[in-house]
Structures are given as C-alpha cells and as structure tokens.
C-alpha cells in the first residue's frame, strides 16, 4: 500500500515543513501564527511520516522516543519565562526587555523573552501531537489481544463490585 513514491515524498516533505513551522513561530510577532501553530505544523509533519512509515519505522528516528519529554521541557521553559521575573522582584510574567526598550536584534529578528515563551508553547504542542498520534498508532498493534483483555477486564469489574 505504501508505495515508494509516498515514502520518498514524505521524507522530502519533512524538512520543509519543519522550516515552515520555524518560520511561523519566529514571525509570529509580526504576522499570523505563533508557537502554537508552529507546533501543530511540525507535529503534522511527523504525523505524515507516521502514516507513511508506520510506528515501528518512526521509532528509529533519533530522539523520537524522547518527544513526550518535550511537553514537560516546553512547559518548564514557559514557566521559567513567567516566574523568573517574579523571583527577580518584578511582576509575574514581565517580559524582557521591558516595554518600550529596544531589543537585541539579528536582522529583523528580535530576541525577547516572549519568544522563549513561544518556544515553550511550540515544544508542548509538538510533543503533544507526536506523542498522542504515535501512542494511538502503537495501540493499534496491541488491538489483536483486546478480546482477551476484555475478558480480563470484565472479570476485574466483577471483583471491583465487591470491594467498593
């Protein structure tokens, strides 16, 4: 079913999609899009791989096993941008540089903590998408034994009835 053509095009599409995601995130402050959209786009890129190659193949991708941790990493990054100012005596969630001050630039890119926050969002959404889709994909493999499990689960429910 999965022809060579699919595989090749999926592989080819991966990098550009990720680049688009990066772009969407970075340009978010000027144009539509932000970390969230970027995360979804990147996750979709992996979803494509997942559909084409199947979950087994995906596991071979480096770091993919650790993608779920991206969720927590992202959350921590976002939390840090929110709470570090608070530790430093400023109001919670005060971004750096302060309002009105000019920010260090690289070309048209401005380095501000809001971007770090957005990176956190990106990581969470990306991790979520990939994690959820790949667990669904893996669950499919386990469906074969589900009949047996149901029998077990029903027995468990019978027991549960006496303990609650």
């Amino acid at each position: 079913m999965t022809t060579e053509l699919y595989k090749v095009s999926a592989r080819i599409l991966l990098l550009p999609t990720l680049l688009v995601a990066l772009g969407v995130m970075v340009k978010g402050y000027a144009d539509p899009g932000d970390g969230f959209s970027a995360g979804v786009i990147a996750a979709l890129a992996f979803a494509l791989q997942l559909m084409v190659f199947g979950p087994g193949e995906l596991d071979r991708l480096p770091l993919i096993r650790y993608v779920p941790y991206a969720v927590f990493l992202g959350l921590i990054i976002s939390l840090l941008t929110a709470f570090v100012p608070s530790v430093m005596g400023q109001t919670l969630f005060t971004h750096w540089p302060p309002a009105g001050d000019s920010a260090p630039r690289f070309g048209t890119l401005e380095f501000i903590t809001a971007v770090a926050f957005d990176v956190g969002v990106f990581l969470i959404v990306f991790g979520f998408g990939v994690g959820v889709l790949s667990s669904f994909a893996r669950a499919e493999g386990r469906m074969r034994t589900s009949e047996e499990r149901v029998a077990r689960a029903r027995a468990a429910e019978g027991e549960a009835g006496n303990t609650t």
Binding site: D31, D34, F93, H95, P97, A114, F117
Partner: peptide, 20 residues
C-alpha cells in the same frame, strides 16, 4: 511589547498567563 500582530502579543504577553 515588540510586536505587530496584536493577537500574538496578547497571547504571549498581555494575556500570556491564559496561554500558560
């Protein structure tokens, strides 16, 4: 707040707490 897209700025700054 160093932005042009007001919605994004709201999401990441003004109401970033919601986003969190």
């Amino acid at each position: 707040a160093h932005g042009y897209d007001i919605v994004t700025v709201i999401l990441a700054d003004f109401r970033g707490f919601d986003t969190m």
